[in-house]
Simulated scan of single mutants.
Amino acid sequence: MRTSTPSLHLAKETSTLAKTSSPVVIAGPCSAENEEQMLLTAQGLKKLQGVTIFRAGIWKPRTRPGSFQGVGSIGLEWLRTVKQETGLRTACEVANTSHVAEAMKQGVDILIIGAHTTVNSFMVQEIADSLKGASVPVLVKNPVSPELMLWLGALERFDQNGITDLGVIHRGFSTIDNAPYRNHPKWDHVVELKNMLPDLPVYCDASHIAGRRSLLRPVSQRALDLGYDGLMVESHHNPVMALSDAQQQLMPQELDMLLQSLKLNHTDEDITRKGVMMEELRKEIEHLDDQLLDLMARRSLVSAQIGDLKADECSLDRQQAWDDVLEKLLKQANSFGINKDFVKTVFQEVRKQYAQTHLYADMGS
Rank of each mutant, 00 (worst) to 15 (best):
V343Q: 06
E284T: 14
Q260S: 01
D289R: 13
N334P: 00
K344C: 07
T267K: 02
L259A: 06
A311S: 09
R351P: 05
R298N: 15
L295E: 06
L259I: 02
K331E: 13
Q353P: 03
D294C: 06
V325L: 12
L292D: 04
Q260F: 00
E349N: 14
E349A: 09
Q320T: 02
L295I: 08
F336T: 03
Y354S: 03
S315W: 08
D324C: 08
Q320I: 09
L330G: 08
Q353K: 13
L258Y: 00
K331L: 11
F342D: 10
D268K: 00
F342S: 05
D270E: 15
L329K: 15
D312Q: 10
H358M: 11
I271F: 02
L329P: 06
Q356Y: 15
E349V: 01
S261P: 09
A321T: 07
D256N: 07
S261D: 03
G307F: 09
N334W: 05
L326C: 13
K331F: 03
Q320V: 13
E349S: 07
S303W: 07
C314K: 10
S335T: 14
N334A: 15
T357P: 02
L309C: 07
Q320L: 14
D294H: 10
L292I: 13
L292F: 05
D270S: 12
D289K: 12
L329D: 08
R299S: 14
L301Y: 07
C314P: 10
G337I: 11
T357K: 15
G337T: 04
M296P: 01
G275R: 01
G307C: 06
Q305A: 14
E286P: 02
D312N: 12
Q348M: 13
A355S: 15
D308P: 00
V343G: 09
H287A: 10
R318T: 04
I285L: 02
T357Q: 15
N339V: 08
E313T: 13
